[in-house]
Write a protein that binds this DNA or RNA. Structure first.
Lengths: 135, 135
DNA sequence: CTGCATCCAGGCGGATACTG
DNA sequence: CAGTATCCGCCTGGATGCAG
């Protein structure tokens, strides 16, 4: 959802609602998080970092983040094409909150694993950890 | 989505993704936020606080939050019925992050209003403000 | 390499009516 | 008062193929 569409109905929305419309969705927070951790990323790097994303969703999500001015897009007119994405200043303001959420989630996942006794495959978990939880 | 369903696929998920699955959706964050601001709330009070919610979504969302142990549910076997909802300890740990998000969103909304020059209806905005942004 | 176009399924959430 | 039950539209997101 675009920012100006949101504004037209801003009256009936509260701030928390507004925020979730801008950074909600299946991939937005993760992309912001990765961009903060790794700095500047190319399209293909992002795609490899999110193994479950399709090109359609990656492009669409990046466009929305760009229109909302949360990320910066830099094109190089070369052959083959090259595009770099990075966090904007506004986007960086969101990192502390994603970090807090991330810390909370990690703790929860560990507690869940203990109490329920699942998550056996430690190797797979380690892969996810290396991709997602690098600090 | 329930917690145990999440755990079965936890290996392929990263922490940020996990968190958004638990507090994402259209109403979850707002409900947690209101419960923190107002303490204990009854079903009907919650419904009035979220003017745009239907009983189906309110019940469903409350059930999911309860199963995820983010809120507490206390029933009184009286006539007429009475049920009270409040934050659990785990739920309270999420408040700082929602607060941060809320502050960010408020700032963004003001900036958007200035730059785009919309949001004319101040009375309606005031209503939302009184309901959503009470501190 | 970095996308866009098209088609399609599933599920989130809405509307309405009914109940202990 | 605090929900259930049912039906249904829409929109998110997936799969595939094509293009500059």
């Amino acid at each position: 959802m675009k920012k100006d569409e949101l504004l037209t109905q801003a009256n009936q929305l509260c701030a928390v609602d507004y925020a979730f419309k801008r950074i909600g969705g299946k991939y937005k927070a993760r992309i912001l998080w990765y961009l903060d951790m790794r700095g500047v990323l190319r399209y293909g790097e992002l795609r490899r970092t999110l193994p479950d994303i399709t090109t359609k969703m990656l492009t669409q999500t990046l466009r929305e983040l760009e229109e909302d001015k949360l990320i910066l897009r830099k094109m190089y007119h070369e052959v083959p094409a090259k595009v770099e994405y990075s966090l904007s200043e506004t986007g960086q303001e969101l990192i502390p909150f994603i970090a807090h959420l991330h810390a909370w989630a990690k703790k929860q996942i560990e507690m869940d694993a203990l109490s329920v006794g699942k998550v056996k495959d430690e190797r797979t978990a380690a892969v996810c950890k290396s991709v997602c939880d690098t600090e």
